[in-house]
Structures are given as C-alpha cells and as structure tokens.
C-alpha cells in the first residue's frame, strides 16, 4: 500500500512536468493539444542522440554519477535537449498551429495537433526504428527503505523527483517574481488587454512553447531513464497527461503539478482494488470523478 503510494508520487513527477507545458499552452492558445506528449518523445530522442555523441567524444562523461544510472553526458544532453525541444515546439507552432489559428477555429487546432502527433511519432519511428531504446542498459537496483512494510525506491527515481521539484520551484519563481511572469499571466487572462498594455503576444506565445517544450523534454528523458523510450511513448502518455491537466484545472500551473501527482498515485493505487487489466481506464476515471465535483478542475477558473 505504502509502496503503491510512493511509486505513484514518483510516476507523478514526470506526469506533472508534462502537464505544466500542456496546461500553459491550452490556457493561452485555448486548444486541447493532442501533440503535446510528442514533445516528450522529441526530447527523449534528442537526449539519446546527444548522449551517444558526448559519450563517444569524451569517454570520461560516460561515467555514472554516484548510485544513479545518469551519466555526465546525459546531464549535458538534458540541457541541450530542452533547448532543441523548446525550439521545435516554437517551430511547429510557427509553421502549423499559428497558421491554423489564423484561419480556423479551436477545433481546427485540436485536429491539427492530432495530425502533427501522427507525423512526429512516425517520423521518429522511421529515423530511430520502432523498438525500444535505453539510455543505460544497466539496471539500477532499488534501495530498501523499510522491510516492514516493504518499501523500495530506486536512486534514479529519487533524483527524478528532486529534479522535477527543483524545476517546478524555478518555474514558480519565474512566474511569480518576474515581469515576464506577470506578462504571461496577463496574456492568459486576457490577450487583448495584455496587448494594449504593451505585452508582445507573439513573444509570449513563443515563451510558452519554449517552457512547455523544455519541461516536456525533461519529462520525456526522466521517463526514459525510469523505463525505456519508444516512438509511441507520446501516444501512451497523452491520456495520463491530459488527465493531470484536467484534474488540476486547465490554466493552472500549480493545478497541473498537483494533478500529475494525483493521477500518478491514483494509477498505482487503483491496482489495489481493480484487476490490472483495467489500469488504462484509471486516468479517465480520474477525469470524470474530478469533473463531476468541479467542472473546471481543482484549480481551474471558468473561462471568460
């Protein structure tokens, strides 16, 4: 039981990271982005490439850091991958979403995102092949925290959780302490009014994509570090991430963080009561349960 709870928190850490970007983009651009989870794939595969490159250029970087299966090469790759993924997100927006936005309505955007998801997923499959990849093929063994009740935690997961929390705090500081953060919130509240007040809307949208892409990349890499990366990981993660976003309430960054942990914990705890075959339904049940009580999610506001 306690093991399920702890596992859920660890799963929740990367769901939260994915959900933050999604909730911001959904709030400012007002569409359900079905291709957001593909940013996680882009990030994960970027890091895989950088990781291989650095390891071959500087073998010293291939050393593992402490008890983690993380290497120096991968650490640098994470930073580079965040940048590349953020940039890809901006480019996708420039070339596709922005144009669709100008022409059509919200539905067109949802649909375009579905099409983009198909394209990204299959292009990755064409380049990297369809089977799973690992950053490190060594297995990182779990540490026994307690024998009774049995509680096991992997060093990697602790690192992932801490890193995720650090990123979230950083984001919180940016959003609450900087002019940039205020502008961003102003745009989200009311794009027209914000523009009147001299906020550059285009730049803000680009910023949202960079943040979303960057955090998505980290989420994808952390996911790959804990499990494995495949071209279809975006497809597999889209519903849990949406669930986290909706549970938290669209537009609320803090809601997304909480939503990620709630969905992670619920998915793990659900097996205590449900047969394991039903686990794909859990995120959906979470969505439904929350929406029945709070139609705009835990922290969402009714949109004006």
């Amino acid at each position: 039981m306690i093991q399920h709870l702890v596992d859920g928190i660890l799963v929740g850490s990367f769901l939260s990271l994915g959900a933050i970007g999604l909730t911001m983009a959904m709030h400012i651009l007002r569409f359900a982005n079905f291709s957001h989870a593909e940013l996680l794939s882009i990030g994960a595969y970027c890091a895989l490439v950088f990781d291989k490159v650095f390891e071959s250029l500087l073998p010293v970087l291939a050393e593992k850091i402490g008890p983690l299966s993380m290497t120096g090469a991968l650490a640098i790759s994470i930073v580079l991958s965040m940048a590349v993924t953020g940039l890809s997100a901006v480019l996708i927006d420039r070339f596709v979403f922005q144009r669709v936005r100008q022409k059509g309505e919200e539905l067109s955007m949802v649909f375009a995102s579905f099409g983009m998801a198909l394209i990204i997923r299959n292009v990755i499959g064409l380049i990297f092949g369809l089977s799973g990849e690992l950053y490190s093929s060594d297995i990182a063994f779990a540490m026994v925290l307690s024998r009774d009740p049995m509680l096991l935690v992997k060093p990697d997961q602790v690192f992932v959780l801490i890193a995720a929390l650090v990123l979230m705090v950083l984001l919180h500081l940016i959003l609450s302490r900087t002019t940039f953060g205020f502008s961003l919130r102003a745009v989200a509240e009311n794009p027209n009014l914000a523009q009147v007040h001299g906020v550059n809307l285009k730049r803000m949208i680009a910023a949202v994509w960079i943040i979303g892409g960057g955090l998505g990349a980290v989420a994808g890499i952390f996911y790959g570090l804990s499990y494995q990366i495949t071209p279809v990981m975006g497809r597999d993660l889209v519903l849990p991430i949406f669930a986290a976003t909706i549970v938290g309430g669209i537009g609320s960054v803090y809601g997304a963080v909480l939503g990620g942990f709630i969905v992670g914990i619920a998915s793990n705890m659900a097996l205590v009561v449900l047969p394991s075959g039903y686990s794909p339904s859990v995120p959906f049940l979470m969505i439904l349960a929350v929406l029945l009580v709070r139609p705009n999610g835990l922290f969402g506001e009714a949109r004006v």
Binding site: D7, L10, Y227, N268, S276, G277, S279, P280
Partner: peptide, 19 residues
C-alpha cells in the same frame, strides 16, 4: 497480472506480482 500495452509505468503491476 495483466500487462496492458503502452502504459507509462508497469511499476504497480510488478509490485503486485512481487508482493
């Protein structure tokens, strides 16, 4: 324990089997 395709994590399933 049933393992569904494409789940983000099999941790819970494995924990159940391990338990």
């Amino acid at each position: 324990v049933a393992i569904n395709d494409g789940q983000p994590s099999y941790r819970a399933e494995v924990t159940e089997a391990l338990g």
